[in-house]
Design a protein around this nucleic acid. Sequence first.
RNA 1: GCUCCCGUAGCUCAGUUGGAUAGAGCGUUCGCCUCCUAAGCGAAAGGUCACAAGUUCAAAUCUUGUCGGGAGCACCA
Length: 668
Amino acid sequence: MNLSEIQNTLRAKVIETAAQVFNVEMEQIAAEVPPKTELGDLAFPVAFELAKQIKQQTGEKQNPRNIAEQLKAALETFDFVEKIEIAGPGYLNVFYKRARFVAANLNSNPLPKLADSNDESKPKICVEHTSVNPNKAAHIGHVRNSVLGDTFVRILQANGNRVEVQNYIDNTGVQVADVVVGFIYLEKKSLEDIKQLNADLQEKGVSFDYYCWDLYAKVGQEYQVNEELKAKRAEVLHLIEEGGNETAILADYVATRNVECILNTMERFGIRYDLLPRESEILHLKFWAKAFDLMKQLGVIHFETTGKNANCWVMPFDDHAGNDDHEANKILVRSNGTVTYTGKDIAYQLWKLGLLGMDFNYKLFSTYFDGKEVWTSTTEESDHASVPKFGSGETVYNVIDTRQSYPQEVVKKGVSLISPDKGERASVHLSYEMVALSPAAAEELNFQLSDEDKTRTFIEMSGRKGLGVKADDLLNRLEKNALAEVTKRNTELSPAVQKDIAHKIAVGALRYFLLKFTRNTVIVFDFKEALAFEGETGAYCQNATVRINSIFKKAEPNALENAFKIVSEKQIEAAEILNSETEIWSLISLASRLEETISSAVSATEPAILAKYVFGLAKAFNLFYHNHKILIEENEVKKAVLLVTAEITRRSLTAGLNTMGIEIPERM
RNA sequence: GCUCCCGUAGCUCAGUUGGAUAGAGCGUUCGCCUCCUAAGCGAAAGGUCACAAGUUCAAAUCUUGUCGGGAGCACCA
């Protein structure tokens, strides 16, 4: 029986007893971990709540401590419980049979549900993340999106869910149009010229998306002074949307090259996708037309003939009160007959949920080095015999920054009007705050600050201004710094191995840095903090794990096996150690809470919960490590208990870090 | 004008659907490598949880108001 099962059993017993003895029905009850191990392993503050309920029902005033006494008797019959103490005004503190618990969990898997995530019969969850406009390199703000999304995918899988990862490609939007304007009108390049440029850049070792980054910023600047160029934007955008012309073909080449670059960047971070749905297919396969018909049939939108929105199709949206400046209703089709972004997004969301009644065609986009495939949408017939089944998610998570809360709300509302069955529950906006730059960081990037910017506590990154910390640049810098340390500490390792270790440390540092903040905290990016390997960092967590691994490398080959045997057979002695040295038991107890932590990260849609847990566990292990010398311990049972503790911690740390997409280096 | 988010140690942030003495990292000061890797460990200092009222046996947490900061409210995407 693992920790979750024990806790659930205890909860059920409390609820059962409350019903039997006090005639009070409780749906769920709070359980908490006492502030100190001395106070027990699990606490129920349930007696206070019961006292209140009893008073409400019978008018009889009962002392919480007396209530606790009666619950205590019922819980003590459970064979994993050593004793129950009533503390303070009426806390019910549970102490487990520690040695028995350890013996029962010698071979337990910290994430028992992970294997279920491959079960094809389970309902699917779709997660959309990354979705960087394919017109420039990804910056640290995009990486926050991707790391959050990817980590949440891993968390869902650890929780036993089947997950599909989508990265939406807005290949026909204004941002792509802007770079295309730059290529065609500023640089006077044809498609052939751009292909040649791509080859030249590759030779020079410059990434195509870096080139576009600068070009995009140049176009943005030029727009300010060149009205003629700005007029080209609408023209180009129209041609791209329409498709089947030279400009559209050129734009497709540019966008696709950028997607390839961005996928390469994300692969460095360990982030992958199943499907890249593209906006061009949403347009050309007429997803919108189908959604439009659906909405008209169901009467969830209407055509306005008078007033400000005359000749527009609008969706009523009464959650927001309208006023003179702003409409309460959301326009989906403009008076000129074109569709708004929100309209297209509703169609796309319907597809994700399997409610649209039509599908993309698919082609293979690329194959990762280990054989994993990533697919994309196409208007042509799917040319592969066995295309995986995409979309039709039971629930859809959209990882999009918090500034898009309003349109996301409209999409959710629209979908629930069309399918009240699935309702608003099926669409989840996994929102997060932006990554901004500290004025110091902006200056470090040689960016000219305006006087207004200087007064601000942070400065928003802007692709249009070319202001941002590029993802690859930052990772390169982290790898360089990590390599310097690795080389210093591990002179005997080969350069290739050193480099691999440095890479893992760099990725761990950046992923942890982005995950330790809760979603609704603005990250004010600071180089010193982001480049740190000490304190609350990924490297700290990796280091603790490497230490455990190194203990087992130095131990005799069958040390762990023997330890398991000793702990199982000599439970009385083991219990003495676990009862007297609370710090050992605290570590075991903490390490046993990974599954529970994953589950709360899912219900709160908050990966930071996992990050904080893993760090806390690494810290607890480091304390244990300094206080106990495992390999030279002379007492046989004590040594076995220490080894088992290290092993249980290792499993949870490794699984927890992997769930965050952080690998464990062989050495540090 | 309306909606949402935030205000916790010098700085950056946690604080588990209201619970026991409000925590962590950084920074500061002082200790610890004869011992499984010091990217580490220990100790000290540091708090009117923005402010006010209310609900409760119990409030950093819930309600209302005030002040301060951020974002959003397009026939843009």
